[in-house]
């Protein structure tokens, strides 16, 4: 597995890194995917000439919709190829502008997770970063890619430590106005009735509500099982989002990045918190002196 960053300022730099990467894949008979903005896509098509036929070009807006789902899809593809003795080659330029700080953080986490999730698949991933991007984003790229196109990257940080640092950033407190409910029974029937009603009020669709109920049930069950009472559920809305968090008094989630990595496929195993990440748009896990909090967000239509 290879995960390289391609820092570029000029088109020339972008192409001189991207074209040889894609060509090598096409000529080596690999499954080659390029996901970037429309401008760069057309530069790549033109630059590749006849080799363009061997590349699957995808608009970044379509490819980078949801960090966990994008990861899941790519890792699954890479796994399936690896099982057939083949390899995935991906040029991926995430969207950084127009993202909220929360979304940026999720995509930065995804860059770190790539190093864990694709290990053993033989996949080759090249991530172009425009050097005019804000410094924190470039800094993230430096920490999450073991290599640059020029060679080893001294700034690379172990992905688990990187995730751990993220998962220790304090969360803003829930607003005073949040709906709050004590969870003290293993039977979560009434909790779900309450959450479903709130979700409908916030304009969630049926599938979103189903996903929210599964997420809340999973997280509350974990808190009841492994946490320390009191377990409290809070619900509130922010513009465009429904937020649901479960807090308990324990520190039962010591592993950084828990549930962040797609589980092994093919055999049924534990996938609870990973599935929660697929079902919600953003999931934040925090453990500390204030206990353990899992905060889940879903896009809400009416707020």
């Amino acid at each position: 597995m290879n995960h390289e960053v391609l820092p570029y300022r000029a088109t020339r730099d972008f192409l001189s890194g991207a074209l040889p990467f894609l060509r090598a894949g096409v000529r080596g008979g690999e499954t080659v995917l390029a996901a970037t903005g429309p401008g760069n896509l057309s530069l790549l098509r033109d630059g590749l000439g006849g080799d363009a036929a061997g590349v699957d070009f995808v608009e970044a807006t379509e490819f980078y919709q949801h960090p966990a789902r994008t990861l899941a899809k790519c890792v699954k593809a890479a796994d399936e190829l690896a099982r057939r003795g083949q390899r995935l080659r991906l040029l991926g330029e995430p969207i950084w502008c127009e993202r909220s700080p929360l979304e940026v953080a999720e995509w930065q986490r995804a860059e770190a997770i790539v190093n864990i999730a694709f290990a053993g698949t033989g996949a080759s991933i090249l991530c172009p970063y425009d050097l005019t991007l804000p410094l924190p984003i470039l800094d993230g790229a430096r920490r999450t890619h073991p290599r640059t196109v020029f060679g080893a990257n001294g700034g690379y940080v172990d992905p688990w430590s990187y995730l751990s640092a993220f998962d220790h950033r304090p969360l803003p407190p829930a607003p005073e106005s949040a709906e709050s409910l004590r969870v003290d029974m293993a039977d979560l029937f009434w909790l779900r009735a309450f959450v479903a009603e709130y979700g409908r009020g916030a304009g969630l669709g049926d599938t979103q509500i189903q996903g929210l109920l599964m997420s809340v049930t999973e997280v509350a069950t974990n808190a009841l099982r492994h946490g320390t009472p009191p377990v409290v559920l809070r619900l509130w809305t922010e513009p465009g989002d429904l937020i649901c968090e479960v807090n308990d008094g324990g520190q039962w989630s010591p592993q950084p990045g828990v549930g962040s990595v797609p589980p092994e496929t093919g055999a049924p195993g534990r996938f609870g918190l990973w599935a929660v990440r697929l079902l919600c748009s953003i999931v934040q896990v925090r453990t500390g002196s204030a206990g353990t909090t899992i905060r889940m967000r879903l896009p809400a239509a009416v707020v």
Partner: peptide, 18 residues
């Protein structure tokens, strides 16, 4: 039910083999 089917789709059939 369709909403359950959608959610299983999101979780991924490869995690729900068989």
């Amino acid at each position: 039910p369709s909403q359950l089917r959608n959610v299983m789709e999101i979780v991924g059939w490869h995690l729900l083999p068989g």
